[in-house]
Design a protein around this nucleic acid. Sequence first.
DNA 1: GTCTATAGGGGGATAGAC
DNA 2: GTCTATCCCCCTATAGAC
Lengths: 186, 186
Amino acid sequence: MDTKTEIMDLAEQLIRSRGYNSFSYKDISSALNIKNAAIHYHFPAKHDLGKAIINRTRLRFAQHISEWKTASPTRQLEQFIATYEGANEKELICFMGSLGPSYKTLPESMQKELTAASFEIRSWIRIILKAGLADGSFSFNENLEEKSDAIITSLLASLIMNRVTGENILASIKSVIFTGLQREAL
Amino acid sequence: MDTKTEIMDLAEQLIRSRGYNSFSYKDISSALNIKNAAIHYHFPAKHDLGKAIINRTRLRFAQHISEWKTASPTRQLEQFIATYEGANEKELICFMGSLGPSYKTLPESMQKELTAASFEIRSWIRIILKAGLADGSFSFNENLEEKSDAIITSLLASLIMNRVTGENILASIKSVIFTGLQREAL
DNA sequence: GTCTATAGGGGGATAGAC
DNA sequence: GTCTATCCCCCTATAGAC
């Protein structure tokens, strides 16, 4: 693997485990047995690295939802939640949960990428919920946009709460999400 | 107001707007027209300040829920959500949303306080939901503990997403929470 | 593309005077 | 209880050799 990719992979891991403002070039250079200057060659400033990572995440998300496209709404939502489960196993939180809280401290280029990512994710979930309503696999009373945001916020924070509590909050949230998409027929 | 309280108030604001690792003693000393050494007198190490703030938040929460005690479950939950609305107006996120993501970077004393706080909040919401089920003001199909965690995670992350999106996600989440506590009678 | 060397600033923390 | 002065470490970033 080329150095640039290795740097990005490790930086992403560091961001999602410690936060953007809590990792340094030294963390990367020492782990990869290179020098800080080598990182600066690939990413002149730290925010260039940060921006590149968010952008790559956006591209990966676009690839994912494209691959999932033919599956049922339920299955697509399961696939989406599976990415959180994968993160959880690696003891990582999602990039939105890591970068969002420190939004105000981020350089503008990173803020823009992050905001763009948030709209892409939110609009995708809306589409999935709408499709589920249309084919009858989902049923709920809440406003569709609001329900969508309730789903992503609870997923985002579940990874954070997993750390703080030491419990598997994500599993609980997953259960609540699917129960909440099946309005009971009495 | 005494200096110690002023320091804590400002530090809390800084933590909840920028994060624990992204504020410095200089931010506080310059704003209060004192010197860094004065802060070190009251809080020898930064983590002493951090711990004190979390502990104060725990005490305040205990006071709040004690004051709310006689109100209906619905009203108590509204009061709780009102604290998020208050934070939102001041452009602050909750302390759990700020400190949780950087949990791994925090000194042990702060981690313990944070974890203790999480259990206090979660157990309170469980009590409220249970009371609401008992008196018939709430109705839902989900497991009570899981439903409780879904509520606090969505609230926590709504403040974060407000920043990233520039929208009022908290209002949406509030709406979804109350709708989700009224299972429809068909 | 990676290195050495270094600049320049900011961080938390402490000693001792007042 | 607050100050001045200072220490030491880590940070991001750049210049120039290889």
